[in-house]
Simulated scan of single mutants.
Amino acid sequence: MGTIYYGGSATPIHIEDRALAHLKVVITTKLRRGESFTLSWTHPEDQPRGRSTIWLHPSIALRFVFDEPEQPHLSREWMEELANSANTSGGITLAAEEVAGGEPADPQS
């Protein structure tokens, strides 16, 4: 389980390493371009019920920490899906299966 440390928040954001690796590419690309957007997720079962959203901005400190030393294989389709959602008014919304470690659901199925 990887972790995002964002700004001065004392609450780390835990996301499965594979999902976090994909998010890292999309987030750093957007922030490098000076673009701001939101990232939302449903709380995992071991946390109080609900969902959270953060506003990602280039001026706010951000750190990604991965449990696994090896980078997972990245899916270009998944990264494109995340990047496209970042460009919407709703921002990126991680689905439960993405946070838990599965591939995103195929919209064709």
Rank of each mutant, 00 (worst) to 15 (best):
G2Y: 04
G2A: 02
T3L: 06
I4H: 13
I4M: 05
Y5W: 05
Y5A: 04
Y5P: 02
G7N: 06
G8L: 07
G8P: 13
S9L: 09
S9Y: 13
S9E: 12
A10S: 08
A10F: 03
A10Q: 11
T11W: 05
P12K: 12
P12F: 07
I13P: 13
H14S: 06
E16I: 03
D17R: 15
D17V: 07
R18A: 07
A19C: 08
L20C: 10
L20Q: 12
L20G: 13
A21W: 02
A21Y: 08
H22M: 03
H22D: 02
L23V: 12
L23D: 06
K24Y: 05
V25N: 14
V26K: 15
V26T: 14
T28W: 00
T28D: 07
T29V: 12
T29H: 14
K30L: 04
K30A: 11
L31D: 09
L31E: 07
R32L: 01
R32V: 00
R32E: 02
E35R: 15
E35L: 04
S36E: 12
S36F: 06
F37R: 06
F37S: 09
F37E: 10
T38N: 10
T38R: 12
L39F: 06
S40L: 01
S40A: 07
W41K: 15
W41T: 10
T42Q: 10
T42E: 04
H43N: 12
H43K: 12
P44H: 11
P44W: 07
E45W: 03
D46V: 10
Q47T: 04
Q47A: 00
P48R: 15
P48W: 07
G50F: 01
I54G: 08
W55C: 04
L56G: 08
L56C: 02
H57M: 00
P58E: 11
S59L: 02
S59C: 03
I60S: 12
I60R: 15
I60T: 15
L62F: 06
L62T: 11
R63I: 10
V65N: 02
F66M: 00
D67V: 03
D67Q: 09
E68C: 02
P69F: 04
P69C: 03
P69W: 06
E70R: 02
Q71C: 00
Q71L: 00
P72D: 06
P72A: 09
H73W: 09
L74Y: 14
L74E: 03
S75N: 13
E77A: 08
E77L: 05
W78Q: 03
E80A: 11
E81W: 12
E81D: 05
L82D: 07
A83D: 10
N84Y: 05
N84W: 04
S85R: 15
S85I: 05
S85Q: 14
N87A: 06
N87R: 13
N87E: 01
T88G: 09
T88A: 03
S89R: 15
G90R: 15
G90I: 07
G91M: 07
G91I: 03
I92C: 08
I92A: 08
T93H: 13
L94C: 04
L94M: 04
A96C: 06
E97C: 08
E98F: 03
E98Y: 09
V99C: 00
A100M: 01
G102I: 01
G102Y: 01
P104K: 14
A105F: 05
A105S: 10
A105T: 13
A105Q: 07
D106Y: 11
P107I: 05
S109P: 09
S109V: 13
